[in-house]
Computed example of a mutant assay.
Amino acid sequence: MSTAASSPASRIEKGASLWQDAWRRLSKNRAAMVSVGVLAVILLACIILPAIPKFLQDPGMQSLENKNLPPSAAHWFGTDHLGRDLFSRILFGGRVSIMVGLITTMVSVTIGITWGAISGYVGGRTDAFMMRTVDTLYALPFLVIVILLGAVLEPITGHVTEFTVRLFTPSGSSAAKANEVRTAVEPFTTLVPLFIAIGALSWLNVSRIVRAQVQSVAKLEFVEAARSLGLGHLRILFRHILPNTLGPIIVYTTLTIPGVMLFEATLSFLGLGVKPPNSSWGILIEEGANRMLSNPLLLFFPALFFSTTLFALNFLGDGLRDALDPKSSKD
């Protein structure tokens, strides 16, 4: 009896969830896993190293007698035309570029998910009106609208900066302490118009993807069962339908981040993004392109970090797309 009880026919194989299957397939994708490691190193370097006191040189400190120095133990990537340490500038600029990519993508994905989910679930005239709105926005020149929105929203930057300084400055602090806090937060508060401008118009593709997914999932039996139980429309939509559309949303999000970072770099290259003396990878590339004949390293190192990050995000997005493909859920 013990032999029969332990026979293969009597064993119950434990099932795996969709996310477990997806992780198993993703872990087999070498390019995606290498990309995860590369992104982790770049993120940790740009976030942790600038926060360590006196580990990096001041990215804004100028030293004209040390300008255009080659890489050395004192300056790992050399110095620029004003004697500023290039390695420090790349890490501090990477923090800004990565923040632009992440926050702007969160804004656009949130708007796109909400708009597309409501449009796909409600249907009818509401769906037609919302999708025609998306079509109208598609017809507008994206770059021009972002530039105009950034110009209109720019006056709020000063108010946001002062509010943030008051928030993080203890009462009774000296003016020097307030200026120190202002120097730390100003590179990020000045980006608020850029966050809003890009995020407010980059959600159009997300809304179409979510709408199509919601329309497909809404026809399934478990949604009809939820309706028969008397659940409200908002609960059905956000608790039952949207969780079953997360796969394509996650994939598109990973592919949106490099697009947003590239667009920010383009704006900064044109002088319309991050304002000097603050830096981003786009500004560093623009400065390097202007001086590539006299010092090509000023272009090489920022472009290397930027392109490596974009490649890693794209490889990760491709890996997630393959891992979350329902047609390949059973290998």
Rank of each mutant, 00 (worst) to 15 (best):
A4H: 11
S6N: 15
P8V: 08
A9E: 15
S10T: 14
I12H: 09
E13C: 00
S17D: 03
S17Q: 02
D21W: 01
A22Q: 05
N29R: 04
A31K: 13
S35M: 11
A45Y: 11
I47H: 00
P50S: 14
P50F: 12
I52C: 07
K54Y: 14
K54P: 04
D58Y: 10
S63N: 15
L64C: 02
S72C: 11
D80C: 10
R84F: 12
L86A: 07
R89H: 04
F92W: 13
G101E: 07
T105P: 00
V107S: 01
S108E: 07
I111L: 14
T114I: 15
T114Q: 13
G116H: 01
I118T: 11
S119C: 12
G124I: 06
M130L: 15
M131S: 13
D135Y: 08
T136D: 01
L137Q: 10
L140C: 08
P141K: 06
L143I: 14
L143T: 14
V144P: 00
V146F: 05
L153P: 00
E154V: 02
I156S: 06
T161W: 01
F163W: 13
V165L: 06
V165I: 10
S171R: 13
S171Y: 08
G172D: 03
S174W: 06
A176T: 13
E180H: 09
A184H: 04
E186P: 01
T189H: 07
A197C: 15
I198W: 11
L201S: 12
V206Y: 02
I209G: 01
I209E: 00
A212I: 02
V214H: 10
Q215L: 09
V217L: 03
A218Q: 14
V223I: 15
A226N: 11
A226Y: 03
L229V: 03
L229W: 04
L231K: 12
L231S: 07
G232N: 05
H233L: 06
R235Y: 02
R235I: 03
H240I: 04
T245L: 05
L246V: 09
I250L: 15
I250N: 01
Y252T: 10
I257G: 04
E264R: 04
L267Q: 11
G271D: 05
S279P: 00
S280K: 07
I283M: 03
I283P: 00
I285H: 02
G288H: 08
G288F: 01
M292A: 14
N295F: 05
N295Y: 03
F300G: 06
S307H: 00
T308Y: 07
L310Y: 08
F311P: 05
F311M: 14
L324F: 09
D331R: 14
